[in-house]
Design a protein around this nucleic acid. Structure first.
Lengths: 255, 255
DNA sequence: GAGTGGTCTAGACCACCAC
DNA sequence: TGGTGGTCTAGACCACTCA
């Protein structure tokens, strides 16, 4: 008779069982979401977290393992575990899968075209989970690749951001910023993109798009619609990119 | 003087240190490559493998964890660990990222257009690491989606396979096969695709492609060039798909 | 040399599955 | 009821980093 089997009132009724390390994972995410640890900073050591949460170091390790696999945390042997950031060279264009056909790394320049506040269009509001009529910031920009001596436009990006989160985002602010846009969002607006979903399709370049990308109207372009999420699966950016794929391609790995 | 610092001839000179669990991982991969365990079958239990390799169960577990993360193995609690296969419903179109805009699952029908043996074209030979002049099998087929009562072509696939591996692959064989093509490759030719790399771009439909996809010439199509690999990073399939993305899109997740 | 993550072990117990 | 993977622990030792 190993178990006494008393069906006493369970303290956790419906959601039932969840492994300890998953609970620790949730606590870590809560700390990240609450800003207890900032992007680029170290979090406490595994031993310290284990003591704080009252579990063994191995359990904390498993929680961190998962977050590291999702690129939310980054382990560095001998140094500690860090909050992922879009600041570092290696992860600068973490979400950009565009590659030059010739090989090598992208090396793109930016050109800001527009930045304005507006009422979120219906579709944008729906995808960003905004109330109808809520404010949004729209940004339009070009990415250009050096081709010999000339600069050739390759990507035309249109972004929509929740106005409430991005108070004070202006063209001047964007213009002055050196570095990846997502880094600006982290540093100035405490918005940290941790994952994204993309929908790709082939479309024909329209008049104004064609002009900006310096292609003939009707040229096939790769349309990349991206919805980016922060902690808690909250959508915080809608981006529609048009990629001119004559000398570049979108790279993906499947397994 | 804790270390004696005798620069004796090291037993493992250059590649140096490799964790035990990585070595176990390699041994497991070797077993898979050698056909010791077939797709869909169970591999021995963690305890048994631990005994066989002379390590602890936890070390085997970590090796299996990695292979499971790469979709090479599949864990099933209470049942065992299985070799991944393209046979099961859930993983039937493991490498196909095409989704209907309306939502839901693809539900596509196939139509074989062509299957012939030929000398591998230069570019194909290069990508598949074939010797120049070596035989290749070329397959062309359509995928069609039900749209109301009608069937609309959505994908035009062109495949090239190494002739040496796919002896006896004929149009009749393909025609008669019910189920995913990758499952046929597993079952009849012992070729197991475990990962793939894709390059996407937008292109204009050419005359014959347009006709087959039932679109006007010049229509933008999503070109998906896929190189699939089996164990040991050996390329075994080159596939070029043209996706008509008016009612479907290519879905991707970033993190 | 102190502190961090990385590896490895051994053993206990739980949840799921099949017989 | 027995076997499987899943969780959790505790402790040892290694490799890397930095002062």
């Amino acid at each position: 008779m190993p178990s006494v089997a008393v069906p006493a009132a369970a303290p956790e009724p419906a959601p039932s069982f969840s492994p300890l390390y998953q609970q620790i994972r949730t606590l870590l995410l809560r700390g990240l979401q609450g800003g207890e640890w900032q992007p680029g900073q170290v979090i406490p050591s595994e031993t310290e977290l284990a003591a704080r949460f009252g579990v063994s170091q191995g359990t904390v390790r498993k929680a961190i393992d998962e977050l590291a696999a999702e690129n939310v945390l980054v382990r560095r042997q001998g140094k500690g575990t860090f909050v992922a950031t879009h600041a570092e060279q290696a992860t600068q264009y973490r979400f950009l899968r565009l590659m030059p056909d010739a090989g090598g790394t992208p090396a793109l320049q930016r050109r800001l075209l527009d930045c304005r506040r507006m009422r979120a269009p219906l579709e944008v509001a729906r995808l960003l989970a905004l109330k109808s009529g809520e404010a949004a910031v729209q940004v339009r920009r070009l990415l250009l690749a050096a081709e010999g001596a000339a600069l050739r436009p390759v990507v035309l990006d249109d972004l929509w951001l929740p106005g409430g989160l991005f108070k004070g985002l202006t063209a001047e602010r964007l213009q002055a910023w050196r570095g990846p846009m997502y880094r600006l969002f982290e540093a100035e607006f405490a918005v940290h993109m941790i994952r994204a979903e993309e929908k790709l399709r082939a479309v024909a370049a329209l008049g104004d798009e064609a002009a900006l990308l310096d292609v003939a109207p009707g040229t096939p372009l790769l349309s990349v619609e991206r919805l980016s999420y922060t902690y808690g699966d909250r959508p915080v950016e809608l981006r529609r990119g048009l990629y001119h794929t004559s000398a570049h391609h979108y790279r993906n790995e499947l397994s």
